[in-house]
Design a protein around this nucleic acid. Structure first.
Length: 151
DNA sequence: GCCAACGTTGGC
DNA sequence: GCCAACGTTGGC
């Protein structure tokens, strides 16, 4: 089993939005970065554990725990010409983008990026490195344990 | 809104 | 395959 951190802009899907969705589950659509796609398509398995992270907002940070509830399948938005994530080069026979489903385990307190940065135990976290923009990153089991101990 | 740091695109 | 130009991300 693996551990992940997945960023979402709360203006798009917040942890509170997730809590009100059917089965508290959301399709992680709209990923248009190959590295992040590959993590979902090639490495994520049902039951993997996820930190739900709010980005591009007033208070960025971890706000919930979630789990991968469905293996990667073609991202439906790539085929929809009216969708902002439409990809004209993708076809149902040859999809380019994939997403998993993510289910909320529980909301947590806000563990802000400033606090994350304050712990030497977390200094190697991908999310805290300068210039890191990946919206999906693996989390080390030790880091997962340390962070869940703070929540 | 700024801007550093990336990722992607496309001409050659 | 190189790499300059361009677009995007995301904390501040």
């Amino acid at each position: 089993m693996r551990y992940w951190l997945m960023k979402s802009e709360p203006s798009d899907v917040s942890v509170d939005d997730l809590a009100t969705m059917p089965n508290q589950t959301v399709a992680w659509y709209g990923i248009r970065n190959y590295q992040a796609r590959n993590f979902m398509r090639d490495q994520m398995r049902v039951g993997d554990q996820v930190f739900f992270y709010h980005s591009s907002c007033a208070e960025p940070g971890i706000v919930g725990l979630a789990t991968v509830s469905k293996l990667a399948y073609p991202d439906q938005t790539q085929f929809d010409s009216s969708n902002k994530y439409f990809d004209p080069k993708a076809t149902p026979e040859n999809p380019r983008w994939f997403n998993v489903d993510v289910k909320l385990v529980k909301k947590t307190r806000l563990l802000g990026i400033k606090e994350l940065r304050s712990y030497p135990e977390l200094e190697h976290m991908r999310i805290l490195q300068t210039g890191n923009r990946l919206s999906i990153t693996p989390v080390d089991p030790k880091e997962w344990e340390f962070i869940t101990g703070l929540l």
